[in-house]
Design a protein around this nucleic acid. Structure first.
Length: 531
RNA sequence: GACGCCGUGGCUGAAAGGUGAAGCAGUGGGCUGCAAACCCACGGAUGCAUGUUCGAGUCAUGCCGGCGUCUCCA
């Protein structure tokens, strides 16, 4: 079985064959930087990041380009409203985009070109189109002559006549056809402008992607991707420009992601129903949000609701709990830190049937929903091993490799899905080593203070929380040994109220901070071994 | 109007024409001092109607309902 991709161009699943053996060259249309990005942008970025990672995990060398549109009407208008230079506005939102991506754990593209850095390339391309009779200049503007490109409409599967019938475009007398689009716009006073053979002006929107994609990926490359709203006119126009200029096929596979909706309606600025990435990450963990965004096919709509993110946060906790449980196994009964946690890939990686199932799912047009189900299957099987072997697994060398292999597999597959499953390694200590120097009530007081307002720095807060939770676990264990259930339960209730979940096993007690609400606690896990 | 997408259990959502995933929620049991977590078991779904087929969630036709694009948009 090999990878098949749905291409908008053919409206069918196509076997993927790279243009150059062993390499994948992909271009995605990035954002126009005039405002903060919302969940819809996050979905698009995430989906194509997963595509990129799947190619990489399949052994391809990937060159990934994602542009910034940093000059356009919206940027100019917004900057004017705010009374700041247009390029300062663009710079601000490029930074914001990068911060958002970093917060989501989505990598940078290999190349992130800006339109304004490629004006000469665009002018050359426009000149070529003029030479080939596909464009015409009028009063300092240059338009693409749609009628001169016979294949116009092949991506959006509409004829020029269809498009004109439904067009809501205002009539411009200077255009030969209402569908003709601007390659170059004469600039008005006060607007950003560059010198060109047609006078001072600025590029049209579509030309930048044609110019930059061919510069960095060649005239023909593998994958061109973006939101489905870009199919027409943006991507249709790119094809007209690029294939018109080169006479060669442009992108070979066209991928388009579906919209994020809210109550069934498209998330959009104009509807006012958008949630910025920042707003979402202020409330939820990035992994929970990403789990939601990957829980359905990338081409279909995805409804965003807070309840849905919370549900995914719980599902995610199941994955993390299992990984933590495996991490704890090696810690044994000695009061020591696990040595460096588990580095993905550092463990023996025998063939695992789940990996094959994962690849079958991803080979089917990047079916992340099915791929995620494979992860949960691995966890259930692993938990079964854990519970059947019970605590004995900690000492039974026979079970450890299988469990560690499962954990390593989960982390590796999680990486492909852009899910960070590393988690915080558990802090393990032994009951005998924790000295109870103050009453439980004082420790509880400190816990409450730490949870509410925190310490001088996040690192301090985490360290102090770990310390006090450990102390409280020891107090509770002492009470349990005395069968003072009320005292033990009071400590558990207090910890629960502060956001920790307690789990008793035969040999240890674990306290894990619950991360469904992000405001909250650092992700910590403390284990007290009874001995 | 043109082009396209979607209707699967309580909710979210998978499914090579061949026993209808997975997650969340629910019920019962195991484990536990009691919990929690986990495991086991259980319950329940293909919008409607025809048709093709040995066999249809899947293919065809029609209908009903929802959505998108054709204008800047991920």
């Amino acid at each position: 079985m090999s990878l098949r991709i749905y291409s908008t161009l053919t409206q069918a699943l196509e076997p993927f064959e790279p243009f150059v053996s062993g390499q994948v060259r992909m271009y995605t249309c990035g954002v126009t930087v005039y405002d903060l990005c919302h969940i819809g942008h996050a979905r698009s970025a995430l989906v194509f990041e997963v595509v990129r990672r799947y190619f990489e995990s399949s052994g391809y060398r990937v060159t990934f380009v994602r542009n910034f549109t940093d000059v356009d009407d919206k940027i100019i208008n917004r900057a004017r409203q705010l009374g700041i230079p247009w390029d300062a506005l663009a710079f601000r939102y490029i930074q914001a985009f990068r911060q958002d991506m970093a917060a989501l754990g989505i990598g940078q593209a290999d190349i992130e070109p800006k339109a304004t850095d490629h004006i000469p390339e665009m002018i050359r391309l426009i000149s070529t189109l003029l030479e080939r009779g596909l464009a015409y200049a009028v009063d300092g503007d240059v338009y693409y002559a749609v009628r001169r490109f016979p294949e116009y409409g092949k991506l959006s599967h509409r004829s020029v006549d269809d498009l004109r019938a439904g067009a809501r475009i205002e009539v411009d007398e200077r255009k030969r056809d209402p569908l003709d689009f601007a390659l170059w716009k004469a600039s008005k006073p006060g607007e950003p402008s560059w010198d060109s053979p047609w006078g001072l002006g600025r590029p049209g929107w579509h030309i930048e992607c044609s110019a930059m994609s061919s510069k960095y990926l060649g005239e023909t490359f593998d994958i061109h991707a973006g939101g489905e709203d870009l199919i027409f006119p943006h991507h249709e126009n790119e094809i007209a420009q690029s294939e018109g200029a080169t006479g060669k096929p442009f992108a070979r596979y066209w991928l388009h992601n579906g919209f994020v909706t809210v109550n069934g309606e498209k998330m959009a600025k104009s509807l006012g129903n958008f949630v910025t990435i920042r707003d979402a990450l202020d409330r939820f963990s990035p992994e929970a949000l990403k789990l939601l965004l990957l829980s359905t096919n990338y081409r279909g709509p995805l409804d965003y609701a807070e309840s849905a993110v919370l549900e995914k946060a719980k599902a995610l906790a199941g994955l993390q709990d299992f990984l933590r449980a495996v991490d704890r196994l090696g810690a044994g009964t000695a009061p020591r830190q696990p040595e460096g946690g588990l580095a993905p890939g550092a463990l023996p990686e025998g063939p695992h049937p789940a990996e094959a199932a994962f690849r079958r799912a991803m080979d089917d047009d990047f079916n992340t929903a099915r791929a995620l189900a494979v992860l949960f299957d691995v966890v259930r099987e692993g938990n079964r091993l854990l519970s059947e072997a019970g605590e004995a697994a900690a000492r039974d060398p026979g079970e450890l490799p299988a469990l560690r292999a499962a954990a390593a597999l989960l982390r590796r597959l999680g990486w492909v899905l852009c899910l960070d499953l590393r988690g915080g390694g558990p802090v393990v200590s032994a009951f005998a080593t924790v000295r109870l120097q103050r009453p439980a009530a004082e420790a509880l007081q400190e816990l409450s203070v730490l949870v509410q307002c925190g310490a001088s720095s996040p690192a301090d807060r985490e360290r102090q929380l770990t310390w006090v939770v450990q102390e409280l676990l020891a107090h509770r264990e002492a009470a349990r040994r005395a069968k003072a259930w009320a005292a033990a339960d009071a400590i558990r209730q207090a910890l629960t109220a502060q956001g920790f979940r307690l789990e008793d096993t035969k040999t240890a007690t674990h306290a894990v901070s619950q991360s469904t609400d992000i405001h909250r606690l650092p992700a910590i896990a403390v284990t007290l071994v009874k001995e």
